[in-house]
Amino acid sequence: RLRTTITPEQLEILYEKYLLDSNPTRKMLDHIAREVGLKKRVVQVWFQNTRARERK
C-alpha cells in the first residue's frame, strides 16, 4: 500500500485545525478532508497520530 504524501500547505491547514480542536467530530473530519483534499480516513489517522505524539 502506498503512503499518502501530505504537502506543506495541507500540513499547515491540519495544524491550524488541530490547535482549534484536537479531537474533531465526524462532521468536522469530513469538512477538513474536503478542505485539504485528502480522504477522511487519512485526516482521521493524522489527528490520531498527532495526539499520540503530543502525549509523549
Rank of each mutant, 00 (worst) to 15 (best):
K17S: 08
R55Q: 10
P8E: 14
K39H: 10
N49F: 05
F47Y: 10
A33D: 03
D21G: 04
T5Q: 13
Q10Y: 01
V45D: 14
Q48E: 15
I6W: 04
K56F: 02
L11Y: 08
R34K: 12
L19R: 09
I32A: 01
R53V: 11
R41C: 12
V43T: 03
R55N: 15
R53K: 13
R53F: 12
D30L: 06
T7A: 14
L38K: 06
R51F: 10
Y18I: 06
L11S: 10
N49G: 07
E54T: 02
R1T: 10
K40G: 13
R26A: 13
E35T: 06
F47L: 02
Y15E: 15
T25I: 03
K27Q: 13
L19M: 09
R3M: 14
K40I: 13
T4W: 05
Y18A: 00
R26S: 13
L2A: 10
T5S: 10
D30W: 08
A52Q: 11
L38C: 06
L29F: 10
T5Y: 06
S22E: 14
R26K: 13
L19H: 06
Y18S: 00
R51N: 14
K56M: 11
T5N: 15
V42I: 10
I6T: 03
A33E: 05
G37D: 10
K39M: 04
L14I: 01
T50R: 13
P8D: 09
M28F: 03
L29W: 11
R53Y: 03
M28C: 10
E54A: 04
T5H: 13
T50E: 15
R3P: 11
L38Y: 01
I13R: 11
W46M: 01
R41L: 13
T5V: 12
K27G: 13
L14D: 02
R34A: 14
V36G: 01
T4H: 08
E9G: 08
V42T: 07
V43M: 02
E12S: 12
R55K: 11
E54W: 05
E12L: 11
L38W: 01
S22T: 10
V42E: 15
Y15N: 13
L19E: 08
A33H: 01
Q10N: 02
Y15M: 10
R26Y: 15
I32H: 03
R34D: 03
R51W: 12
T50Y: 09
K17M: 11
A33C: 11
G37T: 00
K39P: 14
E9C: 04
F47W: 12
I32F: 05
L2D: 15
E35W: 03
R3E: 14
K27S: 13
E12R: 12
E12Q: 12
V45I: 10
N23I: 09
P24C: 01
I13S: 11
R34G: 13
K39C: 13
I6Q: 01
T4S: 10
R53C: 12
E35H: 06
T50P: 02
D30S: 10
N49Q: 09
T50N: 09
Y15D: 11
A52M: 06
R53I: 08
M28P: 00
L14N: 15
W46K: 00
F47E: 01
I32L: 08
T5R: 05
N49W: 04
K17G: 03
R3I: 15
N23G: 09
Q44C: 14
Q48R: 08
E35N: 05
L20T: 07
I13G: 07
Q44Y: 14
L2N: 15
L14T: 00
D21L: 04
P8V: 14
K40M: 14
Q48T: 12
V45C: 05
N23L: 07
R53E: 15
I13H: 03
L20W: 09
R41E: 15
F47K: 00
T25V: 03
P24A: 01
W46F: 06
D21Y: 04
K27V: 13
Y18N: 03
W46I: 00
L20A: 09
R26N: 15
Q44W: 11
S22N: 04
Q44F: 04
H31L: 09
Q44I: 06
V36S: 12
I13C: 05
K40H: 07
R1N: 12
L2I: 09
E54N: 10
R55L: 13
T7S: 09
E9N: 08
S22H: 06
P24M: 02
I6D: 01
T7K: 03
K39S: 15
R41G: 15
A33R: 03
T5L: 06
Y18F: 15
R55F: 07
T50D: 00
D30V: 06
L20S: 07
R34Q: 13
V36F: 03
K39E: 12
